[in-house]
Design a protein around this nucleic acid. Structure first.
Lengths: 131, 131
DNA sequence: TAAACTGAATTACACATGTAAACACAATAA
DNA sequence: TTATTGTGTTTACATGTGTAATTCAGTTTA
């Protein structure tokens, strides 16, 4: 729950970093930089700043390694929260903020706007049946 | 679309103000203050600051009236965007940011977490059928 | 060994945001 | 008419965020 509190504070720019880490697991800062810079056009330093901030917030864990005494000192980062946890926290606050808590309207909106594939529609139907 | 751009910048605190205005239409600042202060505990000045900021952002329109020369000069505020428009803009950016654009996962999440009533479930089913 | 390079840590800086206090002015009450 | 009060306007101020530049410390290279 204290965790949840921290997990709440992921900012727009930081989400990009988190998605990379959730997709690919523990990564060196360089891996993260090379994954993110082309897509965003950010400076590598910007990415590193975000990594530091996420670490300070307790959302990432950092390990400083120096391989076999041959490599540069490198930082490896690992998420301390699952993607699902973070999504859940932010989803709740989004629901409250924008839809004033009315999940039904939120769902209606996304169903209408999302151009779902037939398979996705079927999946969703199945989920509704499971309720 | 330029409108859309502005509509994007509603902050957490500002949403509260907007919901009151969408619920009840054109209101004096005092009406807004009395609606919001009890629920939030904010100072009236805080609410007034938000009204000014929303006006500056072009999200609210303000009319300064002095009734029949008898009342205080009062400010009346009116939203310049529909609730649906603002929801749509913020929903899209939320989807991108938190769910990396995967609407299907977003929907699955909210369906599971929202404890919908049977009626709401039925409604949603109907919407799915209309796709 | 000195220069160049790489990655990490520190510092920066403007703008946004939450949250008002202070000030000003019209209207009303005394 | 003056003091008070309700309302609008201006200013404030810490913290968060986007977005790095700068500096520092090892590593490799000339």
């Amino acid at each position: 729950m204290t965790q949840r509190k921290n997990a709440e504070k992921i900012t727009d720019a930081e989400w990009k970093v988190m998605h990379v880490l959730w997709d690919r697991g523990r990564l060196s800062s360089n891996d993260i930089v090379t994954a993110i810079v082309p897509e965003t056009g950010w400076s590598p330093n910007t990415v590193r700043t975000l990594l530091i901030r996420l670490t300070d917030k307790g959302i990432l864990r950092v390990e400083k390694k120096r391989g076999k005494e041959k490599d540069y000192p490198l930082c490896f980062y690992t998420p301390l929260f699952s993607r699902e946890d973070c999504e859940a926290v932010h989803s709740r606050s989004f629901l409250e903020r924008v839809f004033a808590g009315d999940a039904s309207r939120l769902l209606a909106h996304f169903v209408n706007e999302s151009s779902l594939t037939p398979e996705q529609i079927e999946e969703l139907r199945a989920k509704l049946n499971d309720l």
